[in-house]
Every structure is written in C-alpha cells, then in structure tokens.
C-alpha cells in the first residue's frame, strides 16, 4: 500500500483543483462580479471622455473593448495564487507528486473560466452600447474567448513571479503589460476587420497560435516562478 500508487493521476488531480478553485470562487461571488462590473464602468468612461457621438464611438469600439478586457484581466491576475501563497497551500501544491505544469494549467483554467469566459459572454451587451456593428459582435466574442486565455496564461507568469512580494499589485502590470500587447494588436485588429467587412479569421488564427504557444510555454515559466516565490 504505497502512497505513490494511491496518488490520483495528473488528469484527475487537475479536475480536483479546478473544482476546488471554482468552488472557492462561487462561495465569494462578488469576486466573480468585480471584473464584470469593472468592465461595465470603464465602458461608461469612454463616452464621457471621448464624447457621445455614436459613429465616433463605433470607430473606437474594437480598441476600447479590447483594452478594457485586458485591464480587467490584468487586475484579477494578481489574485490567482495570492491566497494560496498566504495560507500555505502553495507550498503543499509544489510538494504534490503530480506534475506542476498541469496543476498550474488547472489554476489558470479556473481563472480563465471566471474572468475571460464571462467577459466574452457579456461583451456583446457593451459592444451594442458602443454601437459596434452586429457582424463584428460575433468576432469580438470569439477573439475575446481566445485572447483572454492567452492573457490569463501570461498574467499567471506575472502573478507567480510577484506572489511572494507584499506590494506586487502595481509591479505585475509593469511586468506583463508588454507581453499583452501582441494580443491587443491582433484582437482589436480582428474586430476592426469584421467591422469593415474583411474576413477576420486570419487574425483569430494568429491569436489561436499564440494560445498554443502560451499553453506550451507559460506553465513552465509559472511553475519556475512559483518555486522561486515560495523559496524567497
């Protein structure tokens, strides 16, 4: 009866972690609502700052929506590992026999389900408020679904590197915003193309390619970052 034989396999352990993270989030629903509320409020800032002219807003809408999605993702990234670091769960996770690569993916997956997915699902409402043309809304949702997953993975790197620091909040934006830029460029370009009636699939494909790269490499960096943070 050895402990190794009994340990759940990596896939099963990932599901356990995912369920744990989702339960934790559901028990504090305001944490799920905050990024969405943030999204809604910043959308309201743009007409106030840029003026209410509908066609002007429509022109800026792809960029505006993408920047807000990026910011709300950025603001939540900091929390991915923080509570686990503070209560000691993180060091137990590092000692787990399952590969950290996959455990980290489960954490990021939970984060994406709670922020990126929900943002993408509510974005059509805000797109209509900013007069984005109807055919572009579908592309917006698709680009957000793919793009926010990349953002969550990249944000996880920043979170892992700063989780041990007391004042990580501002620092994480400094670290990861440059890495967010390619996603922003192609995400907003996809939506703008859809507005102009040009096929947006090439841009979506590029974001999907970035997602593949991020899934393959980001967990390595996150795992290394977590080991460093727990050790510091």
């Amino acid at each position: 009866m050895s402990a190794v034989a009994q340990a759940p396999g990596p896939a099963r352990f990932c599901l356990v972690l995912l369920r744990r993270q989702l339960t934790l989030a559901v028990r504090r629903p305001i944490e799920i609502g905050n990024p969405l509320l943030f999204f809604a409020m910043v959308v309201a800032l743009f007409p106030l700052g840029l003026g209410p002219a509908p066609d002007q807003l429509a022109g800026f809408a792809p960029g505006i929506l993408w920047i807000i999605a990026l910011l709300s993702n950025l603001l939540t990234s900091d929390t991915v590992f923080r509570s686990d670091f503070e209560d000691g769960s993180l060091e137990q996770l590092l000692l787990a026999p399952q590969p950290l690569f996959l455990s980290v993916l489960a954490y990021i997956g939970a984060h994406w389900l709670l922020t990126g997915l929900l943002l993408a699902l509510v974005s059509p409402v805000f797109a209509l408020m900013l007069n984005l043309s109807a055919p572009a809304v579908g592309v917006l949702v698709a680009s957000l679904l793919l793009g926010t997953a990349v953002l969550s993975l990249v944000g996880g790197i920043g979170a892992a590197l700063t989780v041990g620091l007391k004042r990580g909040g501002m620092l994480i934006s400094l670290l990861i915003l440059p890495f967010y830029m390619p996603v922003l460029i192609f995400g907003s370009a996809a939506v703008r193309n859809a507005v102009l009636g040009i096929p947006a699939t090439p841009y979506l494909a590029i974001i999907a390619a970035m997602l593949c790269l991020a899934i393959a490499l980001a967990p390595l960096a996150i795992a290394a970052g977590l080991r460093i943070s727990v050790d510091a």
Binding site: Q6, R12, F13, V16, D84, Q98
Partner: peptide, 9 residues
C-alpha cells in the same frame, strides 16, 4: 478531500 498536496483520493 481536495487538498492541493494531491496525496491520495
């Protein structure tokens, strides 16, 4: 049951 140490089910 959902402990992150992943020791056993």
């Amino acid at each position: 049951a959902w402990h992150v140490a992943g020791e056993a089910a």
